[in-house]
C-alpha cells in the first residue's frame, strides 16, 4: 500500500509543501486537496519540495496541472524543487521542465520567486 503525505512550511511568503512517499492515482487527490486549500487560503506562491518523494506516476503529475493556471492568473506560481533523479526523470519525460520551474535546490526556487520569474502562461497563443 502506497503512502503519501504533505507537510507545510512557509518562508518569505512562499508556501512550501513537502511531499513524502508515493504519489500515484490513489494519492493524487491528497495533493490536489493540499494545493487547493493553499490557494483558497490566499497563498499563490507555492513551492513543492520533492526531496522525500519516492515515486510519482503520470496521474500524480496531472495534479500540478489542475491549479497552475488559476494560480498564475493570480500572479502566483507553482515551482518544484529538490526532486530525486528517478522522480525528476518522470517530470522530464513529460516535458514538465518546459512548463514549470524545476530547481535542484529549494534556495534556487525561492530565489526565482524573489525575482518574480514565472513560466509563460498556458493561454499564450502560438
Amino acid at each position: 500500500m502506497s503512502t503519501f503525505s504533505v507537510s507545510y512550511r512557509s518562508t518569505n511568503g512562499v508556501q512550501i509543501l513537502d511531499l513524502h512517499g508515493e504519489l500515484d492515482a490513489h494519492t493524487a487527490s491528497d495533493l490536489e486537496e493540499a494545493i487547493q486549500s493553499c490557494f483558497e487560503d490566499g497563498s499563490v506562491q507555492l513551492l513543492v519540495n520533492g526531496e522525500e518523494l519516492q515515486y510519482i506516476s503520470s496521474a500524480g503529475l496531472g495534479v500540478f496541472m489542475a491549479y497552475v493556471e488559476e494560480i498564475r492568473e493570480a500572479d502566483g506560481d507553482i515551482k518544484i524543487a529538490s526532486l530525486q533523479p528517478k522522480v525528476y526523470n518522470v517530470f522530464d519525460l513529460l516535458g514538465f521542465p518546459v512548463l514549470f520551474d524545476i530547481c535542484d535546490t529549494e534556495e534556487k526556487a525561492l530565489h526565482l520567486f524573489e525575482e518574480g520569474n514565472t513560466k509563460p502562461s498556458n493561454e499564450e497563443s502560438s
Partner: peptide, 11 residues
C-alpha cells in the same frame, strides 16, 4: 517534447 494537453500555446 511535452505531453498533449499540457499546453495549448507555442510551448
Amino acid at each position: 517534447g511535452i505531453g498533449l494537453g499540457l499546453n495549448n500555446g507555442s510551448l
